[in-house]
Nucleic acid binder design. Structure first.
Length: 278
DNA sequence: AAATGAACCTGTTTGC
DNA sequence: TGCAAACAGGTTCATT
């Protein structure tokens, strides 16, 4: 599912319901997701109060009054949502967390690419999952100046560069495809061949598209739902993602697709002209 | 060093 | 209809 807009939408929905909440019983129905779930998380989360709910990259961060932060990553197919007590347990409901009211926060993840961790809140962002991450795309630190400098030092297709979390976090396959379409750049264009004007357009479009998607609750293709099990709406705005063979909204040329670094890539051959490539 | 590709796992869709 | 292959929003690790 989840790229930055989905996680941010989820965070915004969870925040008013979880800030100040004290956690009750925590039930593990599986001891590992992508990685083992720390025993200390299960032991200490119960009884803790949530003080702050924030986000870094696609990681959801829940600070507690234990001076520990509960870290949740949804991987590809994860859901993190409130369930009424009468909702049957799904075979992929791996973690159940009782809250103060009778609702239960559930972590459901069929593919188990998600993860949870429990780390010291102090200096959290310098710890393992976060130490080598690039800037947040919606912060000023992610600027055309910054991106241009990075592009100049690498020789890789621009789409691969955008999806590299050491360069910028939160831009996954959907938003990389969409941003490149609006910036009129072909996914295969080598980063070092882009002009500063190209990068200015690209940087601006990434921010526009991510902000727009957050406003409408992110994209739901199959798995993603928010804290209240509601889907996002941004998939209704896709210009190229998944539109293989359908006419470009700008020029009516059929959208093409290819595999790039193992990911489906969608583009318009007329609007996104390939000047240089590998 | 940097870039590419495979692996992790299960469910759904596609194609023969 | 049935079965197998391909594919899926992410990230890490091994290999060039």
């Amino acid at each position: 599912m989840p790229e930055l807009p989905e996680i941010e939408s989820l965070r915004q929905k969870l925040e008013p319901q979880l800030i100040g909440a004290t956690i009750g019983k925590v039930t593990l129905r599986r001891k590992d997701l992508r990685f083992p779930i720390p025993k200390a998380l299960v032991r200490d989360l119960s009884g803790a109060t949530i003080l702050r709910l924030w986000r870094r990259s696609k990681y959801l961060l829940l600070d507690t009054d234990f001076a520990k932060t509960w870290i949740v990553h949804l991987g590809m197919s994860g859901r993190f949502f409130f369930a009424n007590p009468d909702l049957p347990i799904d075979k992929h409901d791996h973690v159940l967390v009782n809250c103060q009211d009778d609702r239960q926060l559930r972590f459901r993840d069929p593919r188990r690419f998600g993860m949870m961790d429990w780390l010291d809140t102090k200096d959290l962002l310098s710890q393992k999952w976060f130490a080598h991450l690039g800037p947040e795309p919606l912060e000023d630190e992610f600027s055309a100046d910054y991106l241009y400098k990075v592009c100049q030092t690498r020789r890789t297709p621009i789409k691969s560069l955008l999806m590299n979390a050491e360069v910028v976090v939160g831009v996954g396959n959907i938003y990389a495809n969409e941003s490149l379409f609006f910036a009129r750049l072909h996914p295969l264009t080598l980063s070092c061949d882009l002009s500063f004007a190209d990068i200015q357009r690209l940087c601006a479009q990434i921010k526009n598209i991510l902000n727009h998607s957050i406003q409408v609750g992110g994209s739901s293709i199959r798995d993603y739902v928010d804290a209240n099990s509601q889907p996002g709406l941004y998939q209704l705005s896709f210009s190229v993602y998944g539109r293989d063979g359908q006419p470009c909204f700008e020029c009516r040329t059929p959208i093409e697709s290819m595999q790039l670094a193992g990911r489906s890539s969608f583009y318009c051959t007329k609007c996104q002209i390939l000047r240089n490539a590998v």
